[in-house]
Amino acid sequence: MMALLLRDLKLSVRAGGGALIGVLFFMTVVAVIPFGVGPDLNLLSRIGPAIVWIGALLSALLGLDRLFQTEREDGSLDLILMQEHPLVLTVLVKCLAHWLANGLPLVIASPLLGLFMNMSETAIGAVALTLLVGSPALTFIGAVGAAVAVALPRGGLLVSILVLPLAVPVLIFGVSASYAAVEDPAPFMPPFLMLSAITMFFAVLGPVGAALALRNAGD
C-alpha cells in the first residue's frame, strides 16, 4: 500500500502528472477576480474567503477524472482489481495520494491568494484551516464520480457535474466557518465541526462507493 502511495505521488510530479496544474488554475481564478470586481478593498476583503474557497473547489475538481482513468487505460486497473487487498483500502490510498499531490498544494497556496483579496490575518488563517480540513472531502466525493465515469472516454466534465452538487455542503460549511472567524456574532466551532464531520463521513463512504463502482465497471 505504501508502494502505491509512493508511485502515485511520483506519477503526479513527473511530466503530465498535473499536480501543479491545479495550483496554477487556482491562482489564475483568484488572481483575475480583483480585475473583474475593481479596486474596492472593502468589497474584496468581504468576498475574499468565498472566492478562495470557490477557486479551491474548482481546482480540486480539475484533475479528479484522471484518478482511475489512467489506471484503466494502461491496464493497471485490472491487476489492482484482482488482488486480495481490500479494494476499499486501495481506493483510500489512491485518494490520499491524490490529495497530497493536488489538494495540499491548494491549501499551501491559499494564504498568498488571501493577500490578493485584502483579507485580514485571521481570515487568511481561517480559510487555510478550513481548506485543510475540507479539501480531503472533495477528493473522496470526487473519487466516486471518477469511478463511475472510469469507462467513459472524455468523462471529465461528467465527473465535475456529478460531483459538484455533493460538494456544495463542503463549500457551505467551509465558507461559513471562515466568515465566522472574522465576523463576531457567529460562532466558529459549529460550522467547523460540521465540516470535519463531512470529511470523516466521506472518507468512509467515498472509497466504499468508488470500490463498488469500479467492481461493476468491468468490461
Binding site: M1, M2, A3, L4, L6, R7, K10, L11, R14, A15, G16, G17, E73, D74, G75, S76, D78, L79, I80, M82, Q83
Partner: peptide
C-alpha cells in the same frame, strides 16, 4: 493476468514499475 495492455506507467522507469508491482502484488 497479462492482457493486451502492459499495465506499466510510461512516466516511471522500468525499475520503478517493477519494484512497485513486486511490492503491490
Amino acid at each position: 493476468y497479462l492482457g493486451h495492455r502492459n499495465a506499466m506507467k510510461a512516466e516511471l522507469t522500468v525499475r520503478e514499475n517493477l519494484v512497485f508491482w513486486k511490492s503491490f502484488l
